[in-house]
Design a binder for these strands. Structure first.
Lengths: 338, 338
DNA sequence: TTGTACGCGTTATCAT
DNA sequence: ATGATAACGCGTACAA
């Protein structure tokens, strides 16, 4: 591997001149610059980013910290789509992306800031962590800028990206109300998810606005898992035949509810209307295709990286981004049975 | 950020001793080691991997080079699952993963080896590239070890991971033959995919073995795209009503064929049996669920990283890994109509 | 316009 | 068992 030293020797100048020539400084004569550029080309030179980062104390690298990056995530593709957005955004601005995956086991061994410092990342985007994850506190204590996905925490150098979950849930419920449903249940995720709280809030608010009082026993807990949602829905729907619609905090859970309905010989949407959340790829292929609230996951990632890099550039400015959601009406919702 | 220099000062020793103590060398007294470890802890020290990499000339980083990393298509689910495997494998062995995405545009600007050298990766795993991609030649000319996913190229420091595509295709076709089908078409991908060639070979071999002669016009080109496959199948099935089964080189194309069948009022599987390839998540949720050849994508990634790191450790040894596939019978195949 | 000298944080060599 | 010193490749203040 050729270094600037080699180039300097070849071109008969000092390393300083080479460095300046290659970095486009003005105080180098056109003649020597040409010569240097040519020899650099000839020697197949490319700068050593490690050395550069070391001396500049800037790695131009951001860490993508994902909790439990595993196959099961392939189902909803959420992580992946967000990642695509991050990747595009980061590479637009000339930042490299380094993948850091953790799990409860690893977290015992290494603290958040250790993980980050070791890899010399300038900032971090964190995804897929629960509210009770100790890393959240670590992030707040750390001086490394961080943007969280779907966790609304703000601090000096901590921001977040999320979507308007409350309003999204309201859109879903309003859609059902408009179809004449009044006994609407909700399949929620778990208490350690920020989005769960928000979506429940939207669910309750919209019902309240419609003058329908919210029943606690109508809100189930499906752990954001398809089988769990199926099990929960199966027993619930038996006990509550009066329920004609269910709003689910995720598409995956909605698919579980659809299975439960099938096992109970409930037709979707004639007997039971279902609205999901996320608009994952699967929702379009389900039968019938799932009505859902669409989140622009790619954009979430894109904004996250944009936010982080802007925080890196200057410490003032925005710390959060909240994206809009959208109702996608497909075929799992119909007028309430009379 | 504390450095070993700080620790040395605090502990009253030299940086050399600190370095050795922290790296577990034997030639340092237990007493001073304890002291050094304590002050390191107290100062919240973590090593600067950049500096270490620089001096050791080893970054312990591998690049994951993905062509056209983007939201669209099932290719992405594939990419993601492979990535999970790579990530787990790499982190098991203490390697970091850095994401490098390219597209034709970027390739014009930077050569493969430039991309790698700049980021100082020790090795590369390449995924999602076509046979005519110029980067493949670059890889062969480069001295940076590389493992390709689904491209069977071998050289001094180039290996690959793939599955037994020929035999996979044979299993698919045999399954159809066993059900009594004889007029079996194939929806292939495009000529620039290695797997296309292999799967076609398996298709032809199995038919030949059964004494059925292969018709060129029975092999279609769906570009690995759902809509393209749908279009192709739509016209083909009209012209060839005698065909009772179709083997598809990807699940996504199989879904396209299913759409075409639906538009033609052909029942699946009663009128038309379909077998896919890949076993993507979607295939399980299609209606009816898709019979397919399952590839263990996670394992592919895991093996790829394992292969690469072993190549990094010692230059002799295995250069390739070929994984087995598996027939997953679901509900898109039935006995041939009589 | 160009070169000298130093520092970034770490490991490795050679003394002591 | 420990320390001084040189390297790794690069950027930059300062001098010329």
């Amino acid at each position: 591997m050729a270094t600037i030293k080699d180039i300097a020797k070849e071109a008969g100048v000092s390393v300083t001149t080479v460095s300046r020539a290659l970095n486009g400084y003005s105080d180098v004569s056109e003649k020597t610059r040409k010569r240097i550029e040519e020899t650099a080309e000839r020697l197949n030179y490319s700068p050593n980013s490690l050395a550069r980062s070391l001396v500049m104390n800037k790695s131009r690298t951001i860490g993508l910290l994902v909790s439990e990056l595993n196959r099961s995530g392939a189902k909803d593709m959420f992580t992946f789509e967000v990642m695509c957005g991050i990747n595009d955004s980061a590479s637009d601005i000339g930042y490299d992306l380094i993948l850091i995956s953790t799990n409860p086991d690893k977290q015992q061994q290494k603290s958040y800031s250790q993980l980050c410092r070791e890899r010399q990342v300038e900032g971090v985007i964190m995804q897929g962590i629960k509210l009770d994850d100790p890393y959240i506190q670590d992030v707040l204590n750390s001086s490394i800028p961080c943007v969280l996905v779907d966790v609304e925490v703000e601090a000096d150098n901590v921001g977040y990206v999320t979507t308007d979950n409350v309003f999204g849930a309201q859109m879903a419920v309003k859609h059902l109300l408009n179809l004449g449903h009044t006994r609407i249940a909700m399949m929620n995720g778990h208490d350690q998810a920020h989005v769960s709280m928000k979506r429940r809030k939207g669910y309750e608010r919209e019902l309240n606005d419609a003058g329908i009082n919210v029943k606690d026993e109508y809100v189930l807990n499906g752990e954001f898992l398809e089988p769990a949602a199926e099990t929960e829905a199966y027993t619930f729907l038996q006990q509550h035949p009066e329920v004609t619609a269910m709003f689910c905090a995720s598409d995956l859970m909605a698919l579980g509810v659809m299975r439960a309905a099938a096992r109970l010989n409930l037709r979707v949407p004639e007997d039971l209307s279902i609205v999901g959340f996320d608009n994952i790829v699967l929702s379009e292929y389900a039968s019938p295709p799932l009505t859902t609230i669409s989140q622009d996951k790619y954009q979430m990632g894109y904004e996250a990286a944009k936010l982080l890099t802007s925080m890196l550039a200057k410490s003032d400015g925005a710390r959060k981004a909240v994206l809009d959601n959208q109702l996608i009406v497909r075929e799992t919702t119909a007028p309430a049975p009379s």
